[in-house]
């Protein structure tokens, strides 16, 4: 029996080696083929309704493939840091990043380009919310944030621009540091979780993406007897598509422009394309550039999320 086991494991081992042997040449083979068939790998960081976005990304992939004339492959990644890293090492060619993650990604991949964003992204806002029981009153001026001192507070995901970076920036503008909260500030992980945690009273206040808040309120999913909006922040730039610099090399010099065009020409009157726009919660896409994110980069450095 023991001999048999040894034999069996040897067999397995050789099977495996054979598998490795097969895999390696296959990879080389793919690289050797004409560049045009190498797929464009895209991904997206989780945002509003990430499960819908991630699970229905196929639609966008096939639209882009049709428009660009190259195969497009979608790879799901849930973790912000993992998607930035995968972009850096070249496993993701083009990613739907948030403001902060986009800057982080471009700093790690010099020459990477911010291409397009949604109409709402050039005028993005965060909202601060609080339970009614906390006694914090809505305010009009940024100085009102000082009221949050001594209360518990939660951000969204720790790398989120609208759920963490910009709220923390506006807090510091109002002279509120993280030590001023009661206990450590929380990181709920998502905008919806922030609403839920504040609504249930686990945290007295929180900050999140404006469009998620508006959507949930419109859908009647927020108990406005429990939780209220305190303040809407001034605008900043948020989500955008960032592409690696080697795309032009791989697919031709006009390729980045073709991508931009493909997004700009998404037509709300075409039912299929309307679905893609709805998926992103956008009326239309607009062109953007790296310069639009100078403020985000500065804030990121100030807060320590960019080194």
């Amino acid at each position: 029996m023991f001999k048999k086991l040894i034999l069996m494991s040897l067999l397995l081992g050789s099977l495996l080696l054979a598998a490795c042997g097969d895999a390696a040449p296959a990879a080389e083979g793919a690289a050797a083929e004409p560049a045009s068939t190498e797929p464009l790998v895209i991904s997206a960081i989780p945002d509003q309704d990430p499960e819908v976005l991630q699970r229905q990304f196929g639609q966008l992939a096939s639209y882009l493939s049709e428009q660009l004339g190259v195969p497009v492959e979608y790879k799901p990644v849930t973790d912000y840091a993992a998607s930035v890293t995968a972009f850096r090492v070249g496993d993701l060619d083009m990613v739907w990043f948030g403001g902060l993650t986009g800057v982080q990604a471009r700093l790690q991949v010099p020459e990477a380009q911010a291409l397009v964003q949604r109409d709402i992204d050039e005028n993005f806002h965060s909202v601060f919310i609080a339970t009614k029981a906390s006694g914090i009153e809505p305010f009009e001026d940024i100085d009102g944030l000082a009221q949050l001192k001594g209360h518990t507070f939660t951000f969204g995901s720790d790398s989120s621009t609208s759920g963490r970076l910009m709220p923390q920036y506006f807090l510091s503008q109002a002279g509120v540091t993280l030590d001023d909260f009661k206990g450590e500030p929380g990181f709920s992980g998502s905008h919806d979780a922030t609403i839920a945690l504040v609504e249930s009273g686990s945290y007295e206040a929180g900050a999140l993406n404006e469009s998620v808040w508006d959507n949930r309120v419109a859908a009647g999913e927020v108990d406005l007897d429990q939780v209220q909006i305190l303040w809407r922040t001034p605008p900043y730039h948020d989500y955008h598509w960032v592409a690696r610099p080697d795309l032009a090399e791989r697919y031709g010099d006009d390729f980045p422009d073709k991508i931009t065009q493909a997004f700009l020409s998404l037509d709300p009157n075409n039912p299929d394309q309307k679905e893609i726009l709805d998926l992103f919660g956008a009326e239309k896409f607009i062109a953007t550039s790296n310069d639009n994110y100078a403020q985000i980069e500065a804030v990121g450095r100030e807060i320590g999320k960019i080194n």
């Binding site: 989780p46 499960e51 799901p76 998607s83 998502s190």
Partner: peptide, 24 residues
């Protein structure tokens, strides 16, 4: 490990959890 891109159950649970889709 699903969370960081391995896919699988962990990945899907996190996605559904982020938007609090309890049924999923």
């Amino acid at each position: 490990l699903g969370i960081i891109g391995a896919g699988g159950l962990g990945h899907e649970i996190f996605l559904s959890l982020q938007s609090l889709r309890y049924e999923q």
